[in-house]
Write a protein that binds this DNA or RNA. Structure first.
Lengths: 344, 344
DNA sequence: AAGCATAATGAACGCGTGTACATTATTTTT
DNA sequence: AAAAATAATGTACACGCGTTCATTATGCTT
């Protein structure tokens, strides 16, 4: 890789001007077939590869889509089914495009400044994962929005702001989950939610209450718990929930990791899923089918959400989008053995 | 984001030349304190952000480190503890540097050409994950190596080639695992390996045989199975292995996913881990502690491997590395309940 | 065959930065 | 105080490409 082949080399070999080389390679303007062949042949002979940076510089675009991954203390965000699936989806779509995927790990405890990424021209657009309802997060997004920068938020809905978002029907999903339990004959259903920083959580909570009420069941204040979407929080809550088990039929957890934490925690205390209580998780992550009994869960099309997010960002960069994007994908209930408790 | 602030704007406001602005911001050459302050103030006032692309262009470097993620049909590679942990480690280290992380998903079935990424100046160096022993993979790496391009291979060792590699002590890890089983009194130990495309697999296999022989046990040809590191392959192999269970004490699986597949498959056939046979996995992924019984596993410092890979690539780009890198990190055995079978 | 429209190509420049070299201001040396 | 050394700043250009504008070749009309 001593001296890279550049456009001028190709031009010289082909016996044409640099402009012609550029035109041939970019397919612009009318070109005589013969010239075209000469150029292509020369480019091939020299194994010419346009300098991406120079192209970007000349075009005034980076050709990169930034994907912002949040960071939480002690957790490797990517090692979470949720994020990795979305990221895979994004990668799949971008792989089919000419854009590159710039992975940006949001440093913890630092004020978020996505605008800088645009100002420095590092990215042309960005996809934001794991945004919270915090003021600081919202401000960062508002800042982007005010500058009319192309970005899209995945799996987080902001009611008060017209951001472009891709989300899933978490209200419906949770409603389905709880209704499913009710239809199975369970009536005493606890709810273990994740952090309220995410709109997902609020939606799930609302649906939980509504589904119960619809069935004529009054939600019980002390049957509602709050974890942080981690397995350990599920284990912790298991201890609080255990004394209530005699009265409880079922538990609805806001994600699979917490559900598994509950399973494990309660199991240690002598309560078995599918026997002493039913359990339903959320996300339908890979682990749902690995535990015993397998976990009934609400399947969220995370991969597709990533794909669509990438798709939409590309469209935005092509100015093919005029209206606000607010896509919500449907979710489905994946039945497994964790809800098989016999009603007594 | 109408018109971006550029160096000339800062120079004008500060009343100095552009070169001086550049010098102040890059900390080169002697600068009068007063001038420095003027420039910094002007830059701040205008909220100046250097154009990253222009910088890269001028410097002749992209400032990107490419991370190559392989793709296999039907699997989202990232959603695998293995890859996501390594990637997180890489991200952590790069986040502390000035390099950006360009995530490159290797399209399936396409001839690999990493050189192109360098020729187009998209990346300055790269970290390759999931490389195989296939000719095509090796050729791609040899090509890189011949051109003296900075790259490092993670978790794959090539004996015949002087590539830079970061790996873990998989021979020792497997030896430990098998010896552990033997020390616990198990003597009839089956081995379920993953694809032979990976050096990891060969190492594990060799250690399995050696550990047995060391204990005076002759490895049995028909107690050796081959999966592909997926859970479904574990489930499939469970059917083959079931008839042997009466004679078998224990199974050593080359990764956790297959181990869990075995657990599930054998469980369906009536054989319980920790009762009818002992089971030990590999990777110590998050799922190991989620299953029941929890899976004893060999813990591989994937996150650290990623961190070190990034560290080394940065050093290579700084020309701080002269000798071949061939790091192998130690692994440890993580004991859990899956090896508690009572010897009869 | 002259005139004109259009196709095909070349020449020249800008993109925003880093930096080598030239120039001027300041300090040190004698 | 003059000369020399050094600090501080400015000028000019390169980096490799896309692209506008100018120019030349070709084909078509009358």
């Amino acid at each position: 890789m001593n001296t890279l082949v550049k456009r001028s080399d190709v031009a010289k070999l082909a016996g044409v001007s640099e402009a012609t080389v550029s035109r041939v390679l970019n397919n612009v303007g009318p070109i005589r077939e013969e010239t075209k062949n000469k150029v292509l042949q020369a480019a091939k002979a020299l194994n010419y590869q346009p300098n991406s940076i120079a192209q970007c510089f000349a075009r005034g675009k980076s050709g990169n889509i930034g994907v912002i991954v949040p960071s939480f203390p002690k957790v490797h965000m990517l090692s979470t089914y949720y994020f990795s699936e979305i990221l895979s989806g994004i990668g799949r779509r971008l792989g089919e495009s000419n854009y590159s995927l710039l992975l940006v790990f949001q440093p913890p405890d630092q004020p978020k400044n996505y605008v800088q990424l645009f100002q420095s021209q590092k990215i042309d657009g960005c996809i934001i994962l794991g945004a919270k309802n915090h003021e600081s997060d919202k401000e960062a997004l508002i800042h982007l929005h005010h500058l009319d920068l192309p970005f899209i938020v995945v799996n987080q809905t902001y009611l008060d702001y017209p951001f472009h978002t891709i989300d899933a029907e978490h209200y419906e999903g949770s409603y389905k989950a709880v209704s499913y339990l009710i239809n199975k004959g369970f009536r005493n259903i606890a709810f273990v939610n994740g952090s309220n920083d995410f709109s997902n959580s609020s939606e799930r909570f609302a649906a939980y209450k509504d589904a119960l009420k619809k069935a004529g069941i009054e939600p019980m204040e002390n049957w509602i718990f709050q974890g942080n979407y981690s397995r350990s929080s599920g284990i912790k809550i298991a201890k609080e929930i255990a004394p209530l088990i005699p009265q409880l039929d079922a538990i609805f957890a806001a994600n699979d990791r917490m559900a598994i934490g509950l399973m494990q925690g309660l199991s240690e205390l002598g309560y078995k899923v599918g026997k002493d209580f039913a359990l339903i998780g959320y996300d339908d992550s890979d682990i749902a089918s690995m535990v015993n009994p397998p976990l009934t869960s609400v399947k969220v099309p995370l991969f597709d959400m990533g794909k669509i997010a990438a798709e939409k960002i590309i469209q935005m960069l092509n100015h093919e989008i005029t209206e606000q994007i607010h896509i919500r994908l449907p979710v489905t209930l994946k039945e497994r053995a964790s809800c098989c408790k016999q009603i007594t």
